[in-house]
Design a protein around this nucleic acid. Structure first.
Ligand code: MN
Ligand code: MN
Ligand code: ZN
Ligand code: ZN
Lengths: 152, 152
DNA sequence: CAAAAATATTGATTGATTAAATATTTTTTG
DNA sequence: CAAAAAATATTTAATCAATCAATATTTTTG
């Protein structure tokens, strides 16, 4: 087991700025997301439980919502999966998602990008461009090739 | 009430090509989606029910899945909403979604576009770029301005 | 038209998320 | 620092979209 020490001070300040109390569960959620980006509520719950045995799923959900509402964390929801959360915010980065195993990777926003500029905006005032690149991650590509060989 | 006559022959052919039987519910679902793009299962169910009083939600769901699996219709799932379906397929077009009222509009894929080319693909083999532009539709922008005036 | 295959209907079930009520913790205030 | 007030956590129940399973009906095939 690896022990990672995280500096939570920046988060404590952030919470204060947003007038959110400093609670054990809340900090544990943030710490968990810092170490395991793109986790869902269930995974976060299980990790937090190791530290705070009495915690509840409900507390995890409420905190995730409270933090996401304030932009302290970001929520993404690839089709067919439960919501995933991450602490990397404000850069409108995008995601690669594996159709096979569900792996999620970050990929930067195109800098020169048409990102907030659709071809035709129909009068919409766009403030966010959410992009998911669907495909196969490297390991799943290899497995696919293996499977194809077997089928022959 | 407006009576719209749709030519369902192309759909009938498509279904045959995909070895799907020609059933009343299935055709009604396609017809509904042709007239009301970006509808969810519940809306489709209610519309189809007007034609086929005995239909069931289950039949709607199964048909939507069968059609989507074969690429005859396309499913999109903006965060926080149930799945929406449409008959416009194969062009990987994108969507504008209103944060306020949920309105959905089509917008073409950038033709020159980095669409299938993320900044860094981490070895992923990308086959689809799903893009949602979040913002406010024209009516909701107006309402917002009104509300702001009242608050003063 | 009859048999086989596909689909529809009905009713029950899952899984993620939210809601409501009470208990505990955190913050504020004196 | 010790109430009192406010915020959060815990527990339990509820919601909602979507799926599963069994049986009935429709569609296709020969
Ligand atoms: Mn990310
Ligand atoms: Mn569309
Ligand atoms: Zn994979
Ligand atoms: Zn709107």
């Amino acid at each position: 087991m690896v022990q990672i020490m995280l500096n939570l001070k920046p988060y404590k300040n952030l919470l204060k700025q947003h007038e959110l109390s400093l609670t054990a569960v809340r900090l544990a959620v943030l710490e968990t997301l810092e170490i395991h980006p793109h986790s869902d509520a269930d995974k976060i719950f299980n990790i937090v439980k190791n530290k705070i045995a009495t915690t509840s799923k409900q507390a995890i959900y409420k905190n995730l919502n409270a933090l996401a509402e304030r932009g302290i964390i970001r929520e993404i929801k690839p089709k067919g999966r439960s919501s995933l959360y991450e602490t990397r915010t404000g850069d409108n980065h995008h995601h690669l998602v594996c159709r096979q195993c569900g792996a999620v990777r970050d990929t930067d926003c195109f800098d020169h990008a048409p990102c907030l500029e659709p071809m035709c905006n129909h009068g919409f005032k766009v403030d966010e461009a959410e992009v998911i690149f669907w495909g196969l991650c490297p390991p799943c590509q290899k497995n696919l090739i293996k499977t194809e060989r077997k089928e022959k």
